[in-house]
Amino acid sequence: MTSAAAKPSPPSGGRGLGEGGAQGAYAHDTGYNFAYLDESTKRMIRRAILKGVAIPGHQVPFGSREMPLPYGWGTGGIQVTASILGPSDVLKVIDQGADDTTNAVSIRAFFRRVAGVATTERTAEATVIQTRHRIPERQLTEGQILVYQVPMPEPLFRLEARVAETKRMHALADYGLMHVKLYEDIARHGHIATSYNYPVMVDGRYLMSPSPIPAFDNPKMDRMPALQLFGAGREKRIYAVPPYTAVRSLDFEDHPFRPIRAPHACALCGSRESYLDEVITDDRGGKIFVCSDTDYCTERQATKAAAE
């Protein structure tokens, strides 16, 4: 997917790590505390997480630390993961649904180094999954925690930039403005023109940003058996959706929420249910569609091959 660039010498291509199965635990770099953060910082973050779980969808401010990865690259998710990770956890990191995107690789390597935990590319094997922009296709279970990286936790920020004012709106559940925006979308475009980061109501009380996952993934959040945690490092907010909590995408009765997906089958595994990436294959308009969730796709291909 990525090579160092045009310079001929550095090798590119070739899969970095095993073939997707769990990698045994690594020796952690003892120059750092387990999972990088010191224990009192972890405790502070866990308190914020507990508060978030107690008030589903409510954004809890927390003392976000400067991490060795840049803000906007997953510092919130990394701090949440660092605070909940134990030595026996199995960690999966995805970005855009894939385990081998550069940032996912980099975050996985970070935790191998500072926590020495086992990592995996298989959704089913993971106990903690840190994600940017996707929810895995395979249904998650009660034993799993999904940690979202969140660039902008405030769902109202495009309508109201002042944080003090949006806090008041949340406190009073004053969400008419969000519906006005959806109304305007339909009046102008004939349908709600939000295709990702599509706002949701959590447990009928708090309006929440699901992070920039495609709207296609929104229904997976509803009554999910796994705990969902959201970390926004730069904006210094944590929020949560406890297992089996109702998460509803905003809509109108006569313009119901519709998850969008490219109307094609995956060119590799043939799936017509999964979310697809469009891949340009040549400069004459040629393109194919493939699963964005690489683990899901690999598994289906293996099943198909075994059946043949």
């Binding site: 008419g176 519906h179 006005v180 109304y183 339909i186 009765e253």
Partner: peptide, 27 residues
């Protein structure tokens, strides 16, 4: 008024704030 919101959206806001969720009826 919300000057950046259509006339229909301006009138509909109070309806939506009090729970109206049928676009056709609001309109």
């Amino acid at each position: 008024l919300r000057m950046g919101v259509s006339a229909g959206g301006n009138i509909g806001e109070r309806l939506m704030a009090t729970g109206a969720r049928h676009y056709g009826n609001i309109r």
